[in-house]
Each structure stands twice: as C-alpha cells, then as structure tokens.
C-alpha cells in the first residue's frame, strides 16, 4: 500500500471498516511511513477527545425516565381489557377444598419463581435504579459524606437496624475500604447507603434494605444509569444494589460475592 491508497482508506481504517487483509496492509504502511502515521494520529486524537468528553458528560435523565415510564404505565392500564367473565373453568368450583388450595399455592409459587427468574426484585423498579445512581453521584466525594457514620461499630449497628444484616460488608478483596454510611430515601423506601473508597479510583456504593419477604433469587439485574453500572440482587429478604464506575461484569462480580457472604 502507498501513501495515496492510505489517504483514501485511512478513515475506514480508523472506523474498523476495512477487511482483515486491507487492515494488515494499512498497518504495514503506517509502521513505515511517518507522514501517514501522523495523519492517523491527528484523526485518532480528535476522535478520542470527542468521544471521551461526550461519554463523560453527566446528565440527569431521571425526569425524562419518570415521564416515559409514567406514560407507558398509563397507556398499559388504559389498554388492559376489563375481565368481567369467569376466567376459571366451571369444574374448578366443583372440586374439593384441599385440591383448590394446593393448586392455588402451586400457582403462587410458580408465579413467584417465574417473576424472580425474570430478574424481578420486590419493590425495586427502573426509577429506583436511576435514583440510587443519582444518589451515588451526589455522594461520591468525602465532602458530600461529611457527617456520615464511619465508625465500624456504629456502622454495624446501622446496618443491623436498617437491613437486618449482621456483618459489615467487607470489600477489601476488591481494594475498597473505609466505608461511610448514611440512611437515605430512594423513592418511597429507605435504604442504607454505604460508600466505599479506593485509592485513585472512584468510590463504590452499596444500597441495602430489608423488605420483609423471604423470597430468594440469585438472579442479578444490571442496568446502566448515567455513568454508572447498577447491579441488584434480592436475597434472604434483603435488597442489595451496587453502584460503581467499574464495568458491568466487575460490578456484578462484587454484587454476587457480597450476596453470597452477606445475605444468606
């Protein structure tokens, strides 16, 4: 490949649109031609600057999110036909009491199982994910957590009272420590918010709440909200949400490890 051909194809190379053979030819030419290499760097730096700035922008989408979900919920409600007819077969009413009770119990269990397999979490919806991400963003600095509880004994008491969990979550295996805690309101519910710090890394937040149900699921639900990944799990009657700037996989690993240690 020569400089003229490179000039024609440099944009395709930059955008990963070249086939493997042309990519290899291009790389060989770039390795040996400082002029073309310089042209590539100009485009590359420009693209990277734009991409990083655009992706780093923090926007508050909570109002739009709430508006969309509310409009959809209203539409769903309006479109749902009223069921005024008997939806149980007539022989149901002719059955003895105990098979009816057993069948109803089985139905409830199956429904609960299916709901949990689908990632449903008692009382936690899209709005809560956005709200915990926003709360995390608002409390990322030590200044924002001023006045929060940082004494380990007091934190243990706080976590026991708020989430009915005995142990203080230990994230030292992931490099996070010095937790600080506060009780916060997310939507209509109160959560215990624990912020963990790590040298030269953005902090990580845990949101814990006891919801009274003993339903257990190992299903993790991950959502990206703002610049953060939010991963949740509901286990042993406790809702746990982890908010971090780490990747979804890393956040999920931490959530899984915490759930297995804490929420048994």
């Amino acid at each position: 490949m020569n400089c003229g051909e490179t000039k024609d194809l440099i944009q395709l190379y930059l955008d990963n649109e070249l086939d493997a053979r042309s990519t290899l030819s291009m790389q060989q030419h770039l390795d040996s031609c400082s002029g073309c290499s310089r042209q590539l760097n100009i485009l590359l730096f420009q693209d990277q600057a734009l991409k990083q700035a655009a992706r780093g922008e923090i926007i508050d989408s909570s109002r739009v999110r709430a508006g969309i979900l509310s409009a959809i919920a209203q539409e769903t409600q309006a479109e749902t036909p009223h069921q005024t007819t008997n939806w149980l077969p007539t022989h149901w009413f002719k059955m003895a009491a105990w098979p009816r009770i057993a069948a109803a119990a089985a139905f409830v269990l199956i429904a609960a199982f299916l709901a949990l397999r689908g990632g449903w979490m008692p009382g936690v919806n899209e709005t809560v994910y956005a709200a915990v991400a926003a709360d995390h963003a608002a409390h990322c600095s030590a200044d924002a957590m001023m006045g929060a509880v940082n004494d380990p004994d007091e934190l243990r008491q706080l976590i026991r009272a708020s989430a009915k969990v005995d142990a203080l979550p230990d994230l030292s295996a992931f490099g996070y420590g010095n937790p600080q805690g506060r009780v916060c309101k997310v939507g209509d519910a109160e959560f215990l918010h624990l912020v963990y710090y790590r040298n030269s890394q953005p902090p990580l937040s845990l949101f814990l709440r006891h919801h009274g149900s003993t339903l257990i699921t190992e299903q993790l639900t991950a959502l990206h909200s703002g610049n953060f990944n939010v991963v949740s799990v509901s286990q042993g009657g406790v809702d746990l949400l982890v908010v971090s700037s780490l990747t979804e996989d890393q956040t999920s690993s931490i959530t899984r490890a915490l759930a297995s240690r804490l929420l048994q």
Binding site: F45, A49, L50, A53
Partner: peptide
Amino acid sequence: FFDPLKKIEGQEAL
C-alpha cells in the same frame, strides 16, 4: 500547523 502530540481538550472538541 496542528500538532497531533498536543493534547486536545475534550470540551473543546465537544
């Protein structure tokens, strides 16, 4: 001329 080694500030690009 444009120096590719000079850092472009993201906000300027945006």
